[in-house]
Structure formats: C-alpha cells, structure tokens
C-alpha cells in the first residue's frame, strides 16, 4: 500500500513537472509560431492570386479582411460584419436573416489588433453592448487593385473524411474560382492526402459560379491530357496548350481521387458550399453598403 502511494505521488509530481516544462516552452514559442502561420497564410494568398517572389504584387493591391459574426439578442439572430472603413476605422454592420439592415455601430479597434480573435470580439462586444451574444463565423478577404475589387479570398473549414479540412479559396470578381489551396488536413496519406496534389486541387481552377453551383464528383479516371495540363510543372506542357485543355474541361465535374471518393467529395462539396454561400451573402452585404452609404475601401 505504501508503495502504491509513493508511486502515485511521484508520478503526479513528475507529470506536473513535465507539464510545467511544456507550458513554458509553449508560452516561449507561441508568438513566433503564430507569426509563421501568418506569414505562410499571406504567402498562400498571394500565390493564389498569381503573385510570387518573381512576380510580386504591385503597391496598388490591397487586402481588406471582413469578419462575419452571428449576433444573438434573446431569440433574435442576425449576421454582423466587421468592416474596415476608408478612414482606417472599423464599423460593425448588423443585417437580419431576411437581409434587411439593422444597425451600424462604430468599433474602436486598432488595425493590428483586428487580427487577434480575442481583441476583436471584445471590441465589438463593447461597441454593440455586452448583453448580446457574439459568435465568430468566418473571414473573407476582399482584394482591391487601385481601389477596384479584383478578387476574394475565402479561408474556410469543412468536414473531410475523418476531421476538418482547412482550405483557402480565391475567387475573381465574378466568383470564378482562381484557385484552391489546402491549408491543413488529416486525410490518409497516399489516399485522401492526395487532395493537396496539383492534379486534384487545380481541377477547381477556372470554374465559373454556374458550374460550381452544380459541381459533382465523377468516378471516371482522370484523362491523361488533363492530368498533364494540371501538372504542367512536372510534364513541362506549354502554357497555351495548358490553357486550351483547361478551357475544354472548365465546365466539367471533378474527377475523384482513386481510393478516396469521400475525401474528393468532401472537398468538392465544401468548396461548392463556400462559394455559393459567399456569393449569396456578398450580394446582401453590397446592397446594404450602397443603401446605407457606408464608405468602405472596396
């Protein structure tokens, strides 16, 4: 009995010590890790828009993040958007579920602090009143070039085969898909894990909204010429040839990955839902912005 007690006591102490060491390491490295993730995200965004180290984004390109929240007041539910204004301030616009404008509240928030989820929701709560419940929904980045809207970036999450897949979508101003990038996933390596490969994710590129709305997954094998066009960096196909083949397939469905139909379907449905919902919400938001004369930089 005495033995058991000493074992329990010593193991507990050992676990506490281990926890302490790990906690210190976590606090010490967390900031750098977040910074890395931010840098990585920014790089992915630029590459989706077609910019790279060789072809850097011009000065006139600006990114304006818009955060969407669900605002609850008693039984009432509304959508809230945190919008950057032209003079650098922030405004929180609530729109009810039918799409009608409810209220506009100025939010006191510094630009750097808007990135931190906690600081952001605190500032909004303080602006709209603490009695209302606030739940973060998602984020959209509106890209402008010289004041004109050129593209939308949608970071999002959808269910995959086992757990959530985090992806980043780029759309042009007509909601045609510019590219899809998988940010995080836990699909099976070699099967569902292939969703990160160009021959799968590049299939989404160039699909217009109308096609995306009724996008399906087909289980026929990927045609060889399409694969070569999708993996142009490997096959060395010429740019005009790639453009011709992509044009030919741009209204087609998504070819499923071999042995990973569920993962293929999850990504396709996820992308489909994200694009459809975004197009719907943006139309409402834009109408409200015009009606209320809200001066946003996009």
């Amino acid at each position: 009995m005495k033995n058991i007690l000493t074992i329990i006591f010593r193991l507990t102490v050992a676990c506490l010590l281990a926890g302490l060491v790990m906690g210190i390491a976590f606090i010490a490295t967390n900031k750098a890790k977040k910074h890395n993730m931010h840098v990585h995200e920014h790089k992915v965004m630029l590459s989706l828009l077609g910019y790279s180290a060789k072809n850097p984004a011009p000065e006139s390109v600006a990114m304006h993040p818009v955060y969407r929240y669900l605002v609850g007041e008693g039984e009432e539910l509304a959508t809230g958007y945190l919008l950057p204004l032209r003079d650098g301030a922030f405004s929180f616009v609530t729109i009810d579920l039918a799409g009608a404008f409810v209220a506009q509240t100025p939010v006191a928030l510094a630009v750097e602090k808007a990135r931190e989820a906690e600081d952001r929701s605190q500032a909004i709560s303080a602006a709209i009143g603490v009695e209302k419940t606030l739940r973060y929904a998602d984020q959209t980045i509106l890209v402008t070039n010289g004041g004109k809207r050129t593209a939308y970036l949608l970071p999002g999450k959808f269910p995959g085969f086992k757990t959530f897949i985090a992806a980043m979508l780029a759309l042009d101003q007509n909601f045609t898909i510019l590219g899809v990038e998988i940010m995080e996933h836990e699909e099976d390596p070699g099967l569902g894990g292939e969703i990160v490969q160009n021959y799968f994710k590049k299939q989404f590129k160039g699909k217009p909204l109308e096609t995306v709305k009724k996008l399906e997954v087909v289980k026929t094998p990927l045609p060889e010429e399409y694969r070569q066009a999708l993996e142009a960096d490997k096959s060395g196909l010429k740019a005009e040839e790639v453009a011709r083949i992509e044009e030919q397939y741009k209204d087609g469905d998504i070819y499923a990955l071999t042995g990973a139909t569920i993962s293929s379907r999850s990504v396709t449905n996820g992308v489909k839902a994200m694009v459809k919902k975004f197009a719907y919400r943006l139309a409402i938001l834009d109408r409200v912005l015009v009606e209320q004369h809200i001066a946003t930089p996009f």
Binding site: N3, I7, R10, L11, A14, C15, A18, V21, M22, A25, F26, T29, N30, A32, K33, N36
Partner: peptide, 25 residues
C-alpha cells in the same frame, strides 16, 4: 517499479519542447 513510464514521460516532454521550438523557428 515505474522507471519505464517515467522515462517515456521525460522523453515525451523533451520531444514536445523540441517540436514546439522547431515549429516556431
């Protein structure tokens, strides 16, 4: 009696620390 669990705990702690440091830097 519990030396192997203790070793594993120690190793796991240091691996986690190295993992976090590598991920950050």
């Amino acid at each position: 009696r519990i030396r192997i669990p203790t070793y594993t705990l120690t190793i796991a702690t240091w691996v986690t620390v190295i993992d976090m440091i590598l991920a950050a830097y």
